[in-house]
C-alpha cells in the first residue's frame, strides 16, 4: 500500500545538501568574505523559525499571525539571563524554549476557540499585547532593547568564533527538521494533518482535536523561542522590533513563499527571502520593488511555493 502522508528521507540529495552547507564557511573564508558566515547563520536560524510556523500553517491549518511573540520571548529570555550573569548556552537555550512554550500555552488555549481569519487576528492581538508590554518595561530596555556583552559559551564549542556558531545552528536546524519529520510521520502528526483537512470528521472519529492543536501550537512556539534565543546569542542584541507585527508578517511570507505543508517549505522560503534581500539591497535602494514583483510571480505561476517548483512530480497535498 502506498503511504501518501509519509515524508520520505531521500538520503542522497539530503547528504549532498548537508555536505554543501558544511563546506560553506570554508568557501566564504577562501573567497575572503567571512561576513557571509554570520549571514548564513542568520538564514539557518530564520529557517528554523519559519519551519516552526510551517508546522502550524502547513500541517495543522492554523495561520498564526503572532509568531514573533515567541521568537521575542526566547530572545529576551536569553538577553535577561545573560545580563543576570548566566553564560552557558546549555542553560540559556532551554530556558528560551521553556519561556516561549509557557507563553504559547495560554495564548494558544484562548486563540484556539476561534477559527480561520479570526484565529489570525486573535494571535495578532496577543502578540501585540506582548510587544507593548515589552516596550513599556524599562528592565527590558523599552524601545532600545538590550545589548549583550558577549556570546554565550557552549562547553568546548567556542561560539565566539562565527564558524563554530554556524555549525551549531546548522546542527540544530537539521535536528529540528529530522524531529519534525518524525513527528509528522508519527500518529500525532497524521492526526494534525487530518485536522487540517477535516476537523469535524476528526472530532467525530474521537480525536481530541483541541488538545492536539494546542500541543502543536506549544511545540511550534517553543521551537520559535529557541530560534529567538539563537538570534539573540548571534547578534548580541535584542530589540522590540523582533516582537512587532511586521516580523510575524515576514515569517508568514517566508512560509507561504517556500511552500506550506512541505517539510522544507520554511527553509526554502527563509533562505530565498533573506538571500534576495541581501543580494538586491546592494544593487538598488528600490529593492523591495523587485522582491514584490518576484513574490507576485511566485503567487501567479508557482501556486505551491518554491518547494512546489522543485518537486513538481511528487505526491502530496
Amino acid at each position: 500500500m502506498r503511504d501518501t502522508l509519509r515524508i520520505p528521507l531521500e538520503p542522497w540529495p539530503t547528504l549532498a545538501v548537508v555536505a554543501g552547507l558544511a563546506l560553506l564557511p570554508a568557501v566564504a573564508l577562501a573567497v575572503g568574505q567571512p561576513f557571509y558566515v554570520v549571514f548564513a547563520t542568520r538564514v539557518l536560524i530564520y529557517a528554523l523559525i519559519a519551519t516552526s510556523l510551517n508546522l502550524l500553517i502547513g500541517y495543522v491549518g492554523l495561520v498564526s499571525f503572532g509568531h514573533a511573540a515567541f521568537v521575542g520571548a526566547g530572545a529576551y529570555t536569553v538577553a535577561v539571563l545573560m545580563m543576570a550573569g548566566v553564560g552557558s548556552a546549555w542553560l540559556l537555550w532551554p530556558a528560551a524554549i521553556v519561556v516561549a512554550a509557557l507563553l504559547a500555552l495560554p495564548i494558544g488555549a484562548i486563540s484556539l476557540r476561534t477559527r480561520g481569519v479570526y484565529f489570525i487576528m486573535i494571535t495578532l492581538a496577543f502578540a501585540q499585547m506582548v510587544y507593548y508590554l515589552v516596550v513599556s518595561l524599562r528592565v527590558l530596555g523599552s524601545d532600545d532593547g538590550l545589548t549583550l556583552g558577549a556570546r554565550p559559551s557552549l562547553g568546548v564549542v567556542a561560539l565566539d568564533r562565527d564558524t563554530s556558531f554556524y555549525y551549531v545552528a546548522l546542527a540544530i536546524l537539521l535536528a529540528a527538521l529530522l524531529g519534525m519529520r518524525a513527528l509528522l510521520n508519527a500518529p500525532f502528526g497524521r492526526a494534525l494533518q487530518g485536522i487540517r483537512d477535516n476537523e469535524i470528521r476528526m472530532e467525530a472519529i474521537g480525536f481530541p482535536t483541541y488538545r492536539l492543536k494546542l500541543l502543536a501550537f506549544v511545540i511550534a512556539g517553543a521551537a520559535a523561542g529557541l530560534g529567538g534565543g539563537l538570534l539573540a546569542s548571534l547578534n548580541g542584541l535584542v530589540g522590540p522590533n523582533l516582537l512587532h507585527w511586521p516580523e510575524s508578517g515576514v515569517l508568514m511570507i517566508m512560509v507561504i513563499l517556500g511552500g506550506t505543508g512541505r517539510l522544507l517549505g520554511g527553509v526554502l522560503g527563509a533562505a530565498a527571502l533573506l538571500i534576495a534581500q541581501e543580494a538586491l539591497a546592494g544593487q538598488t535602494i528600490h529593492w523591495p520593488l523587485a522582491i514584490g514583483v518576484v513574490l507576485l510571480a511566485v503567487v501567479l505561476f508557482a501556486p505551491r511555493g518554491l518547494s512546489g517548483l522543485i518537486r513538481r512530480g511528487s505526491a502530496g497535498p
Binding site: 507561504i256 513563499l257 523591495p288 520593488l289 503567487v299
Partner: peptide
C-alpha cells in the same frame, strides 16, 4: 485572479502589492 485562490496566496500577493506600491510612491 485571486478570488478562487487560498487566503494564504492572497496574503502573499497583496503583501507584494504593498511592497510595489510603497516603492512606486517613493
Amino acid at each position: 485572479r485571486l478570488y478562487r485562490r487560498s487566503h494564504l496566496s492572497q496574503v502573499l500577493a497583496t503583501f507584494a502589492v504593498i511592497l510595489i506600491a510603497n516603492e512606486i510612491v517613493r
